[in-house]
Amino acid sequence: MDEDTDDILNNIIDDDDDANIQMTPAELIQKMEEIWINEKFAPELLPHEQEIVDLVLSQISAMEDNVETLPSADFKKGFYQLEIDRIRFVVTSYLRQRLEKIETYVLHVLKEDEEREEAYLSEAEQQFALKYKEALEEHFDNATMFYPGLPFEDWKSNFVRPNMNSFVFLKAKSNVEGVVVDRGQGDDNEIVDIKAGSQMLISYKGVSDLIKKGDLRLI
């Protein structure tokens, strides 16, 4: 049954011209956990990882099909089921995390995505964000119409943004040199090098690109 799942995964990966080629299922799950944790601790919405999520979901459903064929007396069935549940938890937690950020920062997220070449929202997330924005606007318009004279257009231009200066814990996957730390007193910046494997507490702003590139991961 393992060969079956491997075959399925290989086929999927072969079809996919993306950068993430040649991953074993174990590496795939590892990657899924990493993007889950990154999304959890990053203040802003990170670029979507739809390919990874799709691959993981297809692994889960292949496994589920296999589990169905096992006799229910087999005690190993419990492990397969348990593993499926564990992985499913990671995926749902990741997607929920993203939805929560989209809801909180909906106007900001949509605007950023328009201005950026690479979309951070997946297609489904974009649809959700647009609908959510529509509903929000309608609701606010209805609510503010009762009180004439309110500056009710303000919320549209002055919208909720993630706090990019918030502090995060991270671990370096490779050596990183020249991270700029803004000390918040004018030009008084500091340059920090981070060695592979070391852990830091630092402001998110200086490292956001390195996290998206994958040199650092949040913990």
């Binding site: 200066n165 502090f167 814990f169 000390r183 920090v192 070391s198 830091m200 402001s203 913990i219």
Partner: peptide, 30 residues
């Protein structure tokens, strides 16, 4: 008034135990 810190050798549970408070405090200082 440090704006970054090395936290090598701290395990995840330990980092997690100061998670809500310390980064938030540094945020406010900043």
């Amino acid at each position: 008034h440090e704006m970054y810190a090395a936290v090598d050798n701290l395990t995840m549970m330990e980092i997690n135990s100061m998670r809500p408070l310390l980064p938030h405090a540094l945020d406010h200082i900043y």
